[in-house]
Simulated scan of single mutants.
Amino acid sequence: MSNINLIIEERPRDIGNFMVGRLLPFKGKRMVGPFIFIDHMGPAKMNDRQHVDIPPHPHIGLSTLTYLFEGNIMHRDSLGTAIEIKPGQVNWMTAGKGIVHSERTPDHLRHSDKVMHGLQIWVALPKELEDMNPSFAHADENELPAWTEGPLHFKLIAGKLFDKESPVPVFSPLYMLEIKSREAGDVAIGTDLYGEAGLYILEGAIEEDGHTYGPKELLVAKDSKLCKFRMQAGTTVYLFGGEPFPEERLIYWNFVATDHQHIENAKQRWRDQAFDPVPGETTFIPLPPEPSNLKMK
């Protein structure tokens, strides 16, 4: 009997610079564990006149996880952080009570052709940490736990799993695991999982209970403890999830909170430009006039 509870296909969204594939939130499943938002960026080919240029914008109540497969992004934030994100690295920015950041093509790539491809993820904070001070962490690829079992290669991007722990400083029990197969191989890891679990197929295909699933599909498990599947050769998947929160979440534009007042306060602070600015940046994204509220669970 299949352990797949829900299949979510990428939905195209235009974020201004290029199209992304929206995975979460989804009307049938707003969150998977603490994961509240996932975009698959690209792959987008850009010439020497096309760049990623996302001006300063605010966040509250979440951590952002940026993980690139191809391309580079220059990250700047209101803490004074200025760092270039490269493929395989983990950028982990925690907004807490409020942070502002920009994302742009680095100067050294602005006169050449390039590709942008990766995942942009939001992880909601526990209620008691919604108003924590903002922070930033960065992990190089060689700092992430990685190991091989037969034809399968594993990399723990964030959280704890299999008695291993990523250096990324998470704030609730969660995991994000990359699995690559050079040849076909079986994965049976349910006994090590906890909470809710989702599986995103980036490339290749997996087989589960006689069914085959392919790229750009997010599979949500009925029971993470029963998570097992077969990977075809040349497949890359991302297994993620963790313990869900007892409270509902609200999401409004770039703000995540457990109550409306936090959202309203953040909206007014941004209208008033009362968030700390990003050093060196002079523009910003204004609050959308009528963004929609989505009640999260």
Rank of each mutant, 00 (worst) to 15 (best):
R13P: 09
P291A: 10
N47C: 06
T148E: 11
I206V: 13
H108P: 01
M74P: 07
I189M: 10
Y200K: 01
R11D: 15
A44P: 06
V100I: 09
V278R: 07
I121S: 01
N293I: 15
L239I: 08
S78E: 09
T81I: 09
K295H: 14
D272L: 13
E248N: 13
G71Q: 07
I189W: 10
D186E: 14
E243R: 04
V168F: 02
V32I: 03
I85S: 00
P145L: 07
Q268S: 08
A184I: 12
V115A: 06
E247Q: 11
L174P: 00
D192A: 13
H153P: 10
S2E: 07
F18T: 09
Y67H: 05
K45Y: 13
L202C: 12
P55V: 08
F136D: 02
K27C: 12
L6D: 05
M19K: 03
K45W: 11
K180C: 12
I99A: 03
I121H: 00
I36S: 06
M46S: 04
N17C: 11
E208P: 08
E290L: 05
N142M: 15
M1G: 15
R11S: 15
G210L: 03
R76M: 03
G88T: 01
R49P: 03
F154P: 05
E264N: 15
V123D: 01
I263M: 02
R182F: 15
V278F: 12
G241C: 02
Q273A: 13
A95S: 03
Y238M: 04
M296G: 15
K97L: 05
E203H: 02
K164N: 05
L62M: 14
A44Q: 13
D77P: 11
M231G: 08
Y238D: 04
K228G: 14
D39H: 02
K225C: 10
C227E: 04
E183I: 09
P106C: 00
S135Q: 12
H59V: 09
I179E: 01
S63L: 11
R269C: 07
M132E: 12
G61T: 01
L294F: 09
Y213K: 06
A139C: 13
F37E: 02
N72L: 14
T81V: 11
W147P: 01
K29F: 11
V278M: 09
P145D: 06
S181Y: 03
G88K: 02
P277E: 08
H138M: 14
L6S: 06
I189V: 10
H262R: 14
Q232P: 10
N5F: 04
F171I: 03
V123A: 02
A221N: 02
L62E: 06
R13K: 14
I60P: 05
D259E: 07
E196W: 09
P244C: 11
T105E: 06
V115C: 07
S172K: 00
N265L: 07
E264C: 14
I54R: 05
T212K: 06
D276S: 10
